[in-house]
Design a protein around this nucleic acid. Sequence first.
DNA 1: AAAAATATTTAGGGCATCCTAACTATTATT
DNA 2: AATAATAGTTAGGATGCCCTAAATATTTTT
Lengths: 218, 218
Amino acid sequence: MFTRSEENYLKAIFHLQQDAKDGVSTNSLAESLDTKAASVTEMVKKLAGKNLVSYKKYYGATLTEKGTEQALKVIRKHRLWESFLVERLDFNWDEVHDVAEQLEHIQSEKLVDAIDKLLDYPKADPHGDPIPCKDGTFPKENKSVLSECEIGAKGVIVGVKDSSPIFLKYLDKLEIGINSNFKINDKEAFDAALDIEIDGKPLQLSAKMAANLFVEFL
Amino acid sequence: MFTRSEENYLKAIFHLQQDAKDGVSTNSLAESLDTKAASVTEMVKKLAGKNLVSYKKYYGATLTEKGTEQALKVIRKHRLWESFLVERLDFNWDEVHDVAEQLEHIQSEKLVDAIDKLLDYPKADPHGDPIPCKDGTFPKENKSVLSECEIGAKGVIVGVKDSSPIFLKYLDKLEIGINSNFKINDKEAFDAALDIEIDGKPLQLSAKMAANLFVEFL
DNA sequence: AAAAATATTTAGGGCATCCTAACTATTATT
DNA sequence: AATAATAGTTAGGATGCCCTAAATATTTTT
Ligand SMILES: [Mn+2]
Ligand SMILES: [Mn+2]
Ligand SMILES: [Mn+2]
Ligand SMILES: [Mn+2]
């Protein structure tokens, strides 16, 4: 139906749209797709021609309904594959992204659905990101960021914002993961580092670390 | 490492090489890859430049050692994925080929090995075709064809030559599959149809059917 | 062994996607 | 408001892989 390149553009626009309120800029797309602005302009025009994005010269691109639907399908596949790799093939959570980048483009509805069933319809991927439903629904997330919690707050880690191997491996080293319990004991005035307990173990977390952890309260 | 197209050419050359003793012809490749002879000539030259095939103008192409190695890697992936789809995701044996055509191009040695392990290192795919080993070894097959067996022969179905959905579904209907036992009672002089018992059930098999079933004797 | 038939290669393009360099519009600064 | 800085677009070209039509080599037939 769509080419690999088109799918990657749609996915990137979807993700960049989440933060930026107005249209996604050519340059941000180029950056995130590791390509050049000129190529982006060209592709965005092509996608606009197919009614997948709406595009106004110089003012960026936004997904149409059709484009969003397609982007969510790809994201669904990406996250289901990541879940499969971790749950069934014993991959670590820092090893799955690149393979999922390939697997997400496999065209077979039957296959995606079978993986979904095999995993018993998971709600989130190994990084805590929600998995879009088959019907195109995308559960609204209301996650808090650890760095913005108040002193005394208690809860559970439910996701990571950054899912680069370097960050994930560091979390492994500190024994912090999805479902870890936390309690904020104090916040340093100087650098906003947190004095925190993770599963009962006290440690210090830099503001940067804390800004990349999503939590829910108990 | 190699493009999808290059991998498909290598695989096709490998398969066509099995029958034909001399170089694989441009036209047979074009036919089997559903492309045109001119495209084949071009690609074969490119592959020759990369030392994957040896090619003499007008006399066809043959895989080099390097090309064979690569072809076997792709075939290994194809057959492992087909096995996974049937064994773990309950696909029927007539539904797996097209998806495997896509999955065979996923680049991740870790992934292939994990699937291999998950399935406990299967020796053959759902159609009875042998799965090349990780070390590049390809078990020599010595399968007989049912149509060439003598009257009175007894054994087991171990593979299909044709694995088109139309043939496979027909076998399903007749309840013939891998591991079915057979005993040849008679062969019709007129059309070479076989009077045969499959798992004890007597039926007639056309010569064409019998020519597409591989067997081993007990 | 020549002619006819067939197979293969070459020439010349097309399409998708990417790139650099030059140009133009938007925005930020003075 | 004019100018400078930044962002985005267009022009022109490259690469990979495919195609048709024309040219050439091989094989088959007579
Ligand atoms: Mn990912
Ligand atoms: Mn991708
Ligand atoms: Mn197959
Ligand atoms: Mn393939």
